[in-house]
């Protein structure tokens, strides 16, 4: 069972009306990998991510998580499957009516088998993991800074100790310093909790700092897939544009 890939995208084609976003995409993410999806604006990165987590049904093809189709199984199987991954949305998507504590406690309470004391300790642990204080639990999402929103959202995504973490632009909207801290945080947590990561990013610092595999989306398909070095060696106009710029080179040097 553990040999099955965590994410298995099989022949996915996506069309919105006449616009073809993806054409027959195959992509596999194995356990422990941290895959960064890159692509130009409108290349369908986020769309692909939404298909991975089952928010959107591909026009053709199928996405399997842990060997189970993400759409189409029975409701119980689907629910259990959704508890095995956590998603970090670009804007955090915290429940604005609930304080931070209840936001993180929400998925734990949904399990309906933990007592409140245990939930409280688990929430505090998650807060500590993302370097927040238990006293932050009382704040409302509207009172948080951008960086804190991301960290709370990460804590919520990690609440059930998922095997797969899906990140949509994890560092967008953070200043470079905070972005770097966030990357370090995710990396540390990944070492401890040993989850698989699939993320969309256009930030090269994040990509170089976090991803150990890279897939480049362009011309409606995956034009390059491999380690960062392998992807950069691919001869494709998008790859040249994306990794060739001055800022890109500087970012890659920083990451060593």
């Amino acid at each position: 069972m553990s040999m099955l890939p965590v994410v298995d995208i099989q022949g996915v084609t996506t069309r919105f009306g006449d616009v073809v976003v993806h054409r027959d995409i195959d992509l596999v993410v194995h356990r422990g990998e941290m895959l960064g999806l890159v692509g130009g604006s409108g290349s369908g990165k986020t769309t692909l991510l939404r298909e991975v987590v089952g928010l959107l049904r591909p026009t053709e093809g199928e996405v399997r998580l842990f060997g189970t189709p993400v759409l189409g199984a029975s409701p119980i199987v689907q629910r259990d499957l959704r508890r095995r991954f956590g998603m970090l949305f670009q804007q955090g998507a915290l429940f604005s009516a609930l304080p931070v504590f209840d936001n993180i406690a929400f998925p734990l309470r949904e399990l309906k088998r933990l007592d409140e004391e245990m939930i409280r300790e688990l929430v505090w642990m998650k807060l500590a993991m993302v370097e927040l204080d238990p006293s932050h639990g009382r704040l409302m999402p509207a009172e948080l800074s951008g960086g804190m929103v991301k960290r709370v959202a990460l804590a919520r995504a990690l609440a059930l100790e998922p095997e797969l973490l899906v990140l949509d632009e994890p560092t967008a909207g953070l200043d470079p310093d905070r972005g770097e801290n966030f990357v370090k945080l995710v990396k540390t947590l990944q070492r401890e909790l040993n989850f698989t990561v699939i993320m969309v990013t256009h930030d090269l610092d994040t990509l170089a700092g976090l991803a150990n595999r890279v897939a480049a989306l362009a011309d409606q398909r995956v034009v390059a897939h491999g380690t960062l070095q392998e992807v950069m060696a691919v001869d494709h106009p998008f790859v040249h544009r994306f990794f060739g710029g001055v800022r890109a080179q500087a970012a890659l040097e920083r990451a060593g």
Binding site: E121, M125, P134
Partner: peptide, 19 residues
């Protein structure tokens, strides 16, 4: 050990008044 140590570092339950 370090997973348990993280639990050890949690503040005791009574240290924060309930919201």
């Amino acid at each position: 050990r370090h997973v348990l140590e993280r639990v050890e570092r949690l503040p005791p339950a009574g240290s924060l008044p309930p919201p």
